[in-house]
């Protein structure tokens, strides 16, 4: 692969990511300001964004942070919230043919929801390349890190994301991606099973297990469908 085609993929990944990362900024700012209220320093929340890099796990643990921090409880919470990443990485795994093992280790480190979703969409139309993936992921990572640290200095001078509709950006992104993945009738039972199982679990148990419950119901429905006649692209 030539240098110019790598540069083109990096650029394409970066441009694809940028509007989504900008929508993440208000949430990063909020997380930073919440971290300060819970007695975390800018260095600590910065370190968390740097090595954990998982928005939902960070929001949950910061919202219940105590001193001294109960490391085992927080690790378990992060593990449970992030269990969906087992499914996500298993799904992405066969699409990483162009990646070396060392690159895959870094792919896993950067595999936040938004990056995974954008990579799956890319892989549905083009072979996924390291240039595209890291163009997407590294830019998103740096913007998230900068936003969370900046939030520690801005404090409570922030508008809530709901007031400007920013909270719906992720819902709209994920809905449009699902619409793109749904190319035949076969998607309908998968989506309905996931939708109902997710809502049922959320209503009954609350918490964040609904993602895994819905995901497993949807892929269970897919396994029960009659075998496909021809392979979809």
């Amino acid at each position: 692969m030539s240098i110019s085609s790598v540069a083109r993929d990096v650029r394409s990944g970066f441009i694809t990511m940028l509007p989504i990362a900008l929508a993440v900024v208000p949430f990063g700012l909020l997380l930073g300001s919440e971290a300060v209220r819970k007695g975390l320093t800018p260095a600590e929340i910065g370190l968390m964004s740097m090595i954990v890099f998982a928005g939902s796990a960070q929001f949950l643990t910061v919202s219940i942070w105590t001193h001294p921090a109960p490391w085992a409880a927080f690790a378990l919470a992060a593990f449970l919230i992030n269990l969906r990443h087992v499914l996500m990485s298993a799904s992405l795994s066969p699409k990483l043919k162009a990646f070396r093992s060392s690159q895959k280790a870094l792919v896993a480190f950067l595999l936040a929801d938004e990056i995974w979703a954008l990579s799956e969409r890319r892989a549905a139309h083009h072979p996924l390349t390291p240039g595209f993936y890291f163009g997407t992921a590294v830019g998103f990572y740096l913007i998230w890190l900068a936003a969370t640290v900046a939030g520690t200095f801005l404090g409570e001078a922030l508008p809530a994301p709901e007031t400007i509709g920013f909270d719906f950006v992720f819902a709209a992104l994920f809905i449009s991606l699902v619409t793109g993945f749904a190319k035949s009738w076969r998607a309908i039972p998968i989506i309905l099973a996931s939708l109902f199982a997710s809502l049922l679990f959320k209503t009954l148990y609350g918490g964040t297990g609904f993602i895994l419950a819905g995901g497993l119901a949807g892929i269970g429905a897919a396994a029960l469908l009659p075998p496909e006649k021809k392979k979809t692209p």
């Binding site: 819902a171 996931s194 997710s198 959320k202 609904f210 819905g214 949807g218 429905a221």
Partner: peptide, 24 residues
């Protein structure tokens, strides 16, 4: 096979599960 069909459905199934509570 069926396990592959299930894995191919992961993106649609997981993303739907993530947004379901927001939709309603």
């Amino acid at each position: 096979g069926r396990l592959r069909q299930a894995l191919d459905a992961v993106p649609a199934a997981v993303l739907t599960a993530v947004v379901a509570p927001t939709i309603v």
